[in-house]
Write a protein that binds this DNA or RNA. Structure first.
Length: 663
DNA sequence: ATTTCCTATCTTTTT
DNA sequence: GATAGGAAAT
């Protein structure tokens, strides 16, 4: 028996989960109840009981969660035995299914995954072309309608708004013409293959005999259907979830799936984990008092194992400046008590709230790490570099070609680009083919043809270097040098900080190419991975030290000794939009998730004023605040706190500041 | 064709 | 208060 796998360390319910290996299992795991531990132990138990690692599949929602789960199982059973485990997201699972059999649903094998900015770009173009610009149609709205239709298995033509339907159909045609699919197609086609192609279904069912789905409350109906197709008798499926932590309703997640589960997979073994090992009683009392205001949830109580604890603090701030400054001061003060920066997390509802906090931290020279801000792969310079990689792999991918055609500027402007695009459409060929087409070049000015010839030459030269066996990363690097990409990029930057960040991003991308190709991956495989790896951040987050700044959404599954939950104002949490859409329950769950991240200390703040769009506006306290159990809350006011501290702590730290400055 | 300067719009949350 | 997209100037 491998070390590290100790069943006696588990409680009764957890042990039951670990020992029930066959048949459908539904684990209802409240926040902080040792869910990950239970699931990883259960997977180790499967291995202990002789199930081959290649027959085990665990599906998660983020790549990060997948990596973490894999690592923890490996720790328990050893690298060798866990080697062939499949732990991945729904989306990467579907990529595997599609790579094998996509031809049976009418796409070519070397399909392309369309995500992020490229997707928005296509939609934006189509909005302009179809005349949606004057209706102020937003790409995000169109995308969300398309996504809804796909997830509900409805035809795009059935979208209610005629204009959006038209754009949606055009969008799908565009993707099809590019042999590209988007995130939703990934699931849609994966499910379709499993449904229609019996050989494929048999193959995957035979391979994955034991399936685990993490964060089950976040599955949408399409993912649910996919699971159904993937898991056949004897239904060795285990799902883990908590309806109180369902915060992705806007992406189609449906807690009804937890109920559905019992219909699709008969007589599941239901196990409830309600004993919380993470937070103090005070934190849990407040969390429970909030969540019980939601209707239609499975009644459950998180039972504390750590009794008492500091009262939850609720501090009223005059404005968002003071909020940021005060929190930073708190961190400084508590650090002196021996806490490390990694113990602190600041949680907020919207990304717009980050900046003030960042500035305040930087002023005090406190390092911080950010989660859930802009995705690495959505950065302009990274997508440009990836565009060039795509060109090396296949110049007929129009989107990539158009993206870098004049980036950096090389004399192929809007006019020429539009002409090329029209020509390629008329002749039903790729833009690349157009650029090397005599018939097209004949009508252009010598200046334009010269610029195009030079570009085409570059592409061909570097493709040849690749064929000649030169490493892809080197080819890419020399090409970027040849076109003075970095110098040009630097001129686009305003600050040194920006220059550093972009420089770093570019060299990291080149490094990523190097690593991937050294591992024997093709360039196309590398590009696929980047498309799915939306949660990749600048550096490995865990390696970075400092205070964590994180959105409530991104914080799910994480825990911190000391949590600041900021901006508890009506319109922010609950978000203004949720009132219009009637989704306050989800906002309440979001706050619940935030509260239950805290292990020891929780401080919530709200501001009487906040700067929005550069204008100071008055704010109301969040309507959730009166719902909280005030027996466990200590209400404080910024002015009182500062008044009191100025005569005491503040002065002391002021003088110690002077003291250290003189040293 | 490219740069620069102005203006309208924006803020949920993400695989 | 940033940023993207458009008009005007180079």
């Amino acid at each position: 028996m491998a070390a590290g796998f100790d069943i006696s360390a588990l409680n009764k319910a957890q042990r039951e989960a670990v020992m029930t290996l066959d048949g459908p299992v539904l684990i209802l795991a409240g926040a902080g109840t040792g869910k990950t531990r239970t699931v990883t132990c259960r997977m180790s138990a499967l291995l202990e009981n002789g199930v081959a690692s290649k027959n085990i599949l665990a599906v998660t929602f983020t790549n990060k969660a997948a990596a973490e789960m894999r690592e923890r199982v490996m720790e328990m059973v050893g690298k060798k035995r866990g080697k062939d485990l499949t732990v991945c997201t729904f989306h990467s699972l579907c990529v595997r299914i599609l790579r094998r059999d996509i031809e049976s649903v009418g796409y070519k094998k070397n399909f392309n995954i369309m995500a992020g900015g490229d997707q928005t770009g296509i939609i934006r173009q189509l909005i302009v072309r179809k005349g949606g610009a004057r209706e102020k149609l937003k790409p995000a709205e169109v995308m969300s309608e398309i996504s809804k239709a796909k997830n509900a298995e409805l035809p795009l033509t059935g979208i209610e708004d005629d204009l959006i339907a038209e754009i949606a159909v055009a969008y799908q045609n565009e993707l099809r013409a590019q042999n590209s699919i988007d995130f939703d197609d990934l699931l849609l086609l994966g499910e379709k293959i499993l449904r229609e192609n019996q050989a494929a279904r048999d193959y995957w069912r035979d391979l994955f005999r034991y399936v685990t789905v993490d964060e089950f409350q976040d599955t949408n109906s399409l993912q649910m259907r996919l699971i159904q197709k993937l898991v056949g008798e004897p239904y060795n499926i285990c799902v883990v979830g908590d309806d109180d932590q369902s915060i992705y309703g806007w992406r189609g997640a449906d807690t009804a799936n937890i109920l559905q589960f019992e219909r699709f997979f008969p007589n599941p073994h239901v196990i409830r984990l309600e004993e919380n090992y993470r937070s103090t009683e005070a934190v849990l009392k407040v969390a429970n008092s909030l969540i019980k205001h939601n209707t239609g949830r499975r009644e459950k109580q998180l039972r504390p194992t750590i009794m008492g604890g500091d009262l939850v603090r609720l501090v009223t701030m005059p404005g968002d400046d003071e909020e940021a400054e005060w929190i930073v001061q708190e961190i400084v003060a508590q650090r002196e008590e021996g806490k490390t920066l990694e113990d602190f997390a600041i949680l907020f509802r919207t990304n717009g709230q980050i900046r003030k906090m960042e500035n305040a931290l930087r002023e005090e020279k406190i390092p911080y790490r950010m989660v859930g801000a802009q995705s690495f792969y959505d950065r302009k310079e990274v997508r440009d570099v990836l565009g060039y990689v795509q060109l090396l792999a296949d110049p007929e991918k129009d989107i990539a070609l158009l993206r870098v055609l004049n980036t950096p500027p090389r004399g192929i402007g809007q006019n020429t680009t539009m002409l090329a695009l029209d020509y390629s459409r008329d002749h039903d060929c790729s833009v690349w083919k157009t650029l090397i087409d005599e018939g097209f070049l004949a009508d252009l000015s010598t200046r334009a043809t010269g610029a195009i010839a030079k570009f085409v030459q570059q592409v061909e030269d570097h493709q040849r270097m690749l064929v000649d066996g030169k490493a892809a990363a080197e080819v890419l690097d020399s090409w970027l040098r040849e076109m003075d990409f970095l110098p040009w990029l630097m001129t686009q930057c305003k600050t040194d900080k920006e220059r550093d960040a972009r420089n770093e991003a570019v060299s990291q991308t080149i490094g990523d190419v190097k690593v991937a190709t050294q591992k024997g991956k093709s360039l196309q495989e590398f590009l696929d991975k980047t498309a799915l790896d939306a949660d990749k951040n600048d550096d490995d987050l865990d390696k970075k030290s400092g205070v964590t700044l994180i959105t409530l959404h991104a914080s799910k599954g994480l825990e911190y000794p000391i949590v600041f939950l900021v901006g508890l104002e009506e319109g922010i949490l609950p978000h203004k939009r949720s009132q219009e859409e009637g989704t306050q329950d989800e906002e309440r769950r979001l706050l619940y998730v935030g509260i239950t991240r805290a292990k020891q200390r929780l401080t919530m703040t709200y501001c009487s004023t906040r700067v929005k769009y550069g204008k100071k506006e008055a704010c109301e306290p969040s309507s959730f605040l009166p719902e909280l159990d005030h027996d466990w809350i200590d209400e404080e006011d910024y002015d009182d706190l500062m008044g009191a501290e100025a005569s005491d702590d503040d002065l002391r730290s002021f003088f110690s500041g002077i003291h250290s400055a003189l040293e």
